[in-house]
Computed example of a mutant assay.
Amino acid sequence: MTFKGRHVLVTGAGRDTGRKLALAFAGRGAHVLVTARTLAAAQQTAELIQAAGGAATAAVLDLSDPASIEQLPVDHLDVLVNSGARYLDGAPTAADIGDTIAGAATGTVLLTERLLPLLRASNQPDIVNLISAAGEPGQHRSDAHPAFYAAKHAQARYAEILSERLRPEGIRVISLFPPDFVQDGPRVAGAELTADSVVDCVLFAVGQPRDCFIRAFYFEQRAPQP
């Protein structure tokens, strides 16, 4: 599977799953625009890509700040990967709650809307949304704070209508609804879902021929351990 010649933007790429996604796309030939809340985090991922022989550019993007979205330097795009979102649990402050909803919900919408003209100009346009099982109707499998559920439900419903409206234009909107997962671990039956497996699902969907519209991935979660 190769993505040579494609320009990919990954949000939240300064660490964890976002970084794995950026590295995976770059490793298959894509030029990756690595975005994170701080330039240092974005540059660290970009340097990892460049050290491996890949192509990457680092940029600051704070999804909770509309001005940051508007100022993001990008002039060509084939794949937008909306992976940036602040996980929220425990007893957050009001500021924490506002930041989570502003980033995952409002920020994702504003960024996608801003980049739609660039995606329409591509001949291989894809929008990938790493949502969460917290965004599935009727699901209560995540330990996240209710505000995270609210943000992810908003993100999921936006992706749903966007897929319906953009499909006639050939723009694929692909959403993933993983349960809470771990960054690393044994990739075997009975183990917790890993970030590497989530990344593989993204690569699989984006790598399909253009007549294949995979709208969503849903995951089974490991039964709670006694």
Rank of each mutant, 00 (worst) to 15 (best):
T2K: 04
T2A: 08
K4G: 15
K4F: 13
K4T: 15
T11C: 09
G14M: 07
L23A: 01
F25Q: 01
G29R: 05
T38M: 10
A40I: 12
A40K: 15
A42M: 12
Q43Y: 08
Q43G: 06
T45A: 08
A46S: 10
A46G: 12
E47Y: 05
Q50Y: 02
G53R: 05
A56E: 03
A59Y: 03
V60C: 14
L63R: 06
D65R: 08
A67T: 13
S68N: 13
S68C: 14
I69S: 04
L72M: 14
P73V: 06
P73W: 09
D75L: 07
H76L: 08
V79F: 02
V79M: 07
L80D: 02
L80F: 14
S83R: 02
G84Q: 03
L88P: 05
D89I: 06
A91R: 11
P92W: 14
P92V: 07
T93E: 06
T93N: 08
T93F: 13
D96Q: 11
G98H: 13
D99Q: 14
T100H: 00
A102V: 10
G103Y: 00
G107A: 12
T112R: 12
L115G: 06
P117G: 10
Q124S: 12
D126Y: 00
L130T: 03
L130P: 00
I131L: 09
E136T: 08
D143V: 14
A144M: 11
H145P: 08
A147I: 09
A151G: 02
A154I: 08
Q155A: 03
A156G: 09
A159I: 04
A159R: 01
A159M: 06
A159T: 07
S163A: 14
E164S: 11
E169Q: 13
E169T: 05
R172K: 15
V173R: 04
I174L: 15
I174E: 01
S175Y: 00
L176H: 02
P179V: 07
D180P: 02
V182I: 15
P186D: 14
V188T: 14
L193F: 04
F204Y: 13
A205Q: 00
V206P: 01
Q208L: 15
P209N: 06
P209Y: 04
F213R: 00
I214M: 11
A216M: 02
A216Q: 15
F217G: 01
F217E: 01
F217Q: 02
Y218Q: 14
Q225W: 09
